[in-house]
Simulated assay, not measured.
Amino acid sequence: MTIAIIEFGGSNCNLDVLHVLEDVVGVDAERVWYKETDLDRFEGAIIPGGFSYGDYLRSGAIASRTPIINSVKKIADEGKPIMGICNGFQILTESGLLNGALMTNKYPKFRCEWTNLRVETTDSPFTSAFKEGEVIRIPIAHMDGNFYADEATLSTMEDEKLVTFRYVDKEGRVTDEVNPNGSQENIAGILNGKRNVMGLMPHPERAAESILGSNDGLRMFQSMVEYINNR
């Protein structure tokens, strides 16, 4: 098994993801530059965080138009798991692989802090190792994390349980006070309709070892690997 880590000019969390996959989870991973046009040799892919192309135009807009995105779409169509973290989430929405959009935070300021997330579904390649309703601790680091979708899309997402994580307090309650960016319905992560593509704004790779203050994020990578092994 080898998982691709997709890199663009401005990616800055690629080495963190590589460390988690190789040194913590114990699987092979390979950094893949955005000019690559064939991802068939990989069993899955992660688009890490950062500031691809300096967030010019819109966060993720330029990266979503690079050659590798067609290859990402191809392996997604084949059912292989794709995870987009922070800027990766923005790229997935800009490319149409996920619904909605990520706008500037309601209070237009870069937020870098710990957040509590409630696990909304375990029926995905990325959340199977969790318990539904469980509260986990994962940090954020973004300025454009304000998730928006129209009412019809939000309704479909709720009906099909396509929301993976919401910002909550320590007791698991959804409140405006704990929403760090103004996201609708406190949404922190979502799935596509086939459930094999996930985007989330928090950084699980920064919470994959207890020495970092939390290892709750590790289970996202472990869930992904288990899914690949069982395909």
Rank of each mutant, 00 (worst) to 15 (best):
M1L: 07
I3W: 00
I3V: 11
A4Q: 03
A4I: 03
I6D: 00
I6W: 00
F8N: 15
G9E: 15
G10F: 14
L15M: 08
E22P: 03
D23M: 09
D23H: 08
D23P: 01
V25R: 02
V27I: 09
V27T: 05
D28N: 07
D28R: 02
R31H: 06
V32Q: 03
K35P: 00
I46Q: 08
I47S: 10
P48H: 03
G49N: 05
G49D: 11
S52W: 02
Y53H: 02
D55P: 02
R58V: 03
S59F: 01
G60F: 01
S64Y: 06
S64F: 06
S64I: 12
T66A: 09
S71E: 07
V72K: 05
K73S: 04
K73D: 01
D77W: 00
E78A: 07
G79R: 06
G79N: 12
P81R: 14
M83N: 14
N87F: 08
G88S: 10
F89N: 08
Q90G: 05
Q90A: 04
L92Q: 07
T93L: 04
E94A: 00
L98P: 03
G100P: 00
G100D: 01
M103C: 01
M103N: 07
T104A: 06
N105S: 01
P108W: 02
F110T: 00
C112Q: 05
N116W: 03
N116Y: 14
L117K: 15
R118A: 14
E120T: 12
T121V: 10
T121D: 11
T122P: 03
D123R: 07
D123H: 10
S128H: 00
E132Y: 04
G133D: 08
R137S: 12
I138G: 03
P139Q: 10
M143L: 09
N146E: 02
Y148R: 13
E151T: 12
L154M: 10
M157R: 08
E158H: 15
E158C: 09
D159K: 15
E160Y: 12
V163W: 10
Y167W: 06
V168M: 14
V168H: 14
D169Y: 04
D169R: 08
K170W: 02
R173E: 15
V174M: 13
V178A: 11
N179G: 14
I190W: 13
I190M: 11
K194D: 10
R195G: 12
N196P: 02
N196G: 07
V197Q: 06
M198H: 12
G199S: 10
M201K: 04
E205Q: 13
E209P: 04
S214M: 12
L218E: 14
L218T: 11
R219W: 08
M220L: 14
F221A: 14
M224Q: 14
V225L: 13
E226D: 12
N230S: 10
